[in-house]
Computed example of a mutant assay.
Amino acid sequence: MNSHDWGVCKCEVKSDNVPFEDGQSFDLRISVLDSEYQVMVSGQHCYSFAYRLLPGSVKMVQVWRGVSLTSMCV
């Protein structure tokens, strides 16, 4: 997990908890809470990520590395 502000990437946050499996579909939900994002994968809490930018200033979510996005709701 990371953030990018004014052309600069911040320090990446990594986790050993990787709930994804090659070739398997999953449901990813990112909740905006009082001071952090909460990430749920297929109904299970996996990560919390403290705000580095105000949530209203976030302009994009990037999906990469072989993930096929089939739908997105905001």
Rank of each mutant, 00 (worst) to 15 (best):
V13A: 07
F20N: 04
K14N: 11
E36C: 09
M1H: 01
L53G: 01
S68K: 14
L54H: 13
Y47V: 06
P19K: 08
R52A: 08
K14V: 05
L53Q: 12
P19Y: 07
S3W: 00
D34R: 07
G66L: 03
V61S: 02
S48Q: 14
V67R: 03
C11W: 06
F20I: 06
G56S: 13
S71D: 09
Y51F: 15
G56P: 00
N2K: 01
L69D: 05
L53P: 00
V18E: 10
R52W: 06
R52I: 02
L33W: 12
E36P: 00
H45R: 13
V8G: 01
G43M: 07
V67Y: 05
D27C: 02
N2Q: 04
Q24T: 08
V39K: 02
Q44N: 14
G43D: 11
H4W: 13
I30D: 11
C46F: 02
R52T: 07
V58I: 15
V63F: 13
S68M: 10
N17A: 08
Y37D: 05
H45L: 15
Y47W: 12
G56H: 09
V63S: 05
I30W: 09
Q62M: 02
H45G: 04
P19E: 10
V61G: 04
C46E: 13
L28R: 01
A50W: 07
Q24N: 13
K59D: 11
Y47N: 13
S71K: 09
M40Q: 14
Q38A: 14
L28D: 01
V61C: 07
C11D: 11
C11F: 03
L53V: 11
E12Q: 12
V32Q: 12
S68P: 00
R29A: 11
Q44E: 15
R29F: 02
D16K: 14
L33M: 13
L53K: 12
V61E: 01
S25P: 13
S3T: 10
M40D: 15
V18S: 04
S25V: 02
V61N: 04
L33Y: 03
S25M: 09
S57W: 06
F49T: 02
G66Q: 02
V39M: 12
H4R: 05
K10Y: 05
V8M: 03
R29N: 09
C73H: 04
V8I: 10
L33R: 15
S35V: 02
Y51M: 06
F20P: 00
V8N: 08
S35N: 14
V63C: 13
P55T: 06
V32I: 14
V39C: 09
R65D: 11
L54A: 10
